[in-house]
Design a protein around this nucleic acid. Structure first.
Length: 343
DNA sequence: AAAAGTGTCAACCGCTGGGGG
DNA sequence: TCCCCCAGCGGTTGACACTTT
């Protein structure tokens, strides 16, 4: 036996709102307010709508000072930064952007921003590949000239420090929108614990707490300055498991909240690639494998470049995909994503 | 010009947590 | 303490618009 519906589905109208309905709802709320009871509101006005529907219509469309579309670069940056930091908590993200609704931001992220990010990532990947190839050629030439027959080239693994994603905040930016301090305060409110230790520059520092078995350890390169928003002068420190217990939502499992957003992002981009094979190019090294063929590409210098992943803010440079996969917790998104697995 | 494909966004659905009885 | 109701939230759907073939 399921939960009783909030309203009689047979008696309520569904679908797009007519201008008359909008006018009725708007006029009533502007005059009387919601009265604290959305369920009762449609009857009072004489609307054949569900209370939830009225609420949504008001919040997302009729409410004054609502902005639709035309997201600025600055807003993009804020959304990306917050998504990476706290995951898909659209209402919280929306609260940082005056006039924007959670629904709007969610739609904007799903339809445009995610792809925009992917495009940027692919560009970086192409450039990186070109420079890596060049580097390899040069090294090969050097090696060839000194090569003793039968000798092998030592495994090259040059950690790549990617360029910062385009979320660097300009100090001259409109400070009411998103200054470093307000982001920090927001994250504190969400359960963050921040140190005064200035040496620890931001919350990515502790992502290495991911329960690894020693093969993918903290001595691996951490991408501590990945997000401009987070590289605040006021130092941030990651949350420990205690504070993470404040997040019963599965998004907040794991050692810190950043991991959630990063995982989400990686999984989403990965799914995008899986469902859209033409996007595979550029994502292979993101996961340390050739996604098109399903085989790991960890042996080549090219595909061990995890900088690409880092360009999305992912903190770890992982040299051995297989080893690392084993150390990833069961509930990790990587565990569920068969498209990331070697065939 | 028409069909197919793709993108966008408003609206719906169902779950969760908080407040009140 | 438990239960119920409701607001709020995030994920999903479907209709429409636009673009490509």
């Amino acid at each position: 036996m399921g939960r009783a519906p909030c309203c009689d589905k047979a008696k309520v109208k569904k679908g797009p709102w007519s201008p008359e309905e909008d006018a009725k709802l708007k006029a009533y709320i502007e005059e009387h307010g919601t009265g604290g009871n959305w369920i009762a509101l449609p009857q009072k006005i004489g609307l054949k709508r569900c209370g939830k529907s009225c609420r949504l219509r008001w919040l997302n469309y009729l409410r004054p000072n609502i902005k639709h579309g035309g997201f600025s670069e600055e807003e993009d940056n804020i959304i990306c930064s917050l998504y990476i930091s706290i995951g898909s908590r659209w209402s919280i993200i929306a609260a940082q952007l005056p006039g924007r609704t959670d629904n709007d931001i969610k739609n904007y992220w799903n339809t445009r921003l995610k792809k925009k990010l992917l495009g940027k990532q692919r560009k970086e990947q192409a450039a990186r590949r070109a420079s890596l190839k060049q580097e390899i050629m040069i090294k090969r030439e050097i090696n060839d000239s000194f090569m003793v027959p039968g000798a092998t080239i030592p495994h090259q693994q040059t950690p790549y420090w990617p360029e910062l994603p385009a979320v660097i905040m300009n100090p001259s930016q409109d400070s009411h929108l998103m200054d470093q301090e307000s982001i920090r305060n927001l994250l504190i409110k969400l359960g963050g614990r921040f140190s005064d230790d200035i040496r620890e520059s931001n919350i990515f520092t502790a992502i290495n707490n991911y329960p690894l078995d020693g093969s993918c350890r903290q001595d691996q390169v951490l991408y501590t300055n990945s997000i401009g928003m987070l590289s605040s002068p006021a130092p941030m420190r990651s949350m420990d498991s205690t504070c993470c217990s404040q997040f019963p939502n599965s998004n907040y499992n794991g050692p810190n909240m950043c991991q959630a957003g990063l995982d989400n992002l990686l999984v989403e981009l990965g799914e995008l690639a899986c469902s859209n094979p033409q996007h595979l190019e550029g994502l292979d090294s993101l996961y340390g494998m050739d996604m098109a063929s399903g085989s790991t590409g960890a042996s080549s210098a090219e595909s061990t470049s995890w900088g690409n992943m880092s360009s999305l803010g992912y903190p770890q440079l992982v040299s051995d995909y297989e080893t690392c996969l084993q150390s990833v917790p069961q509930d990790s998104p990587f565990e569920d994503s068969s498209c990331f697995r070697p065939q």
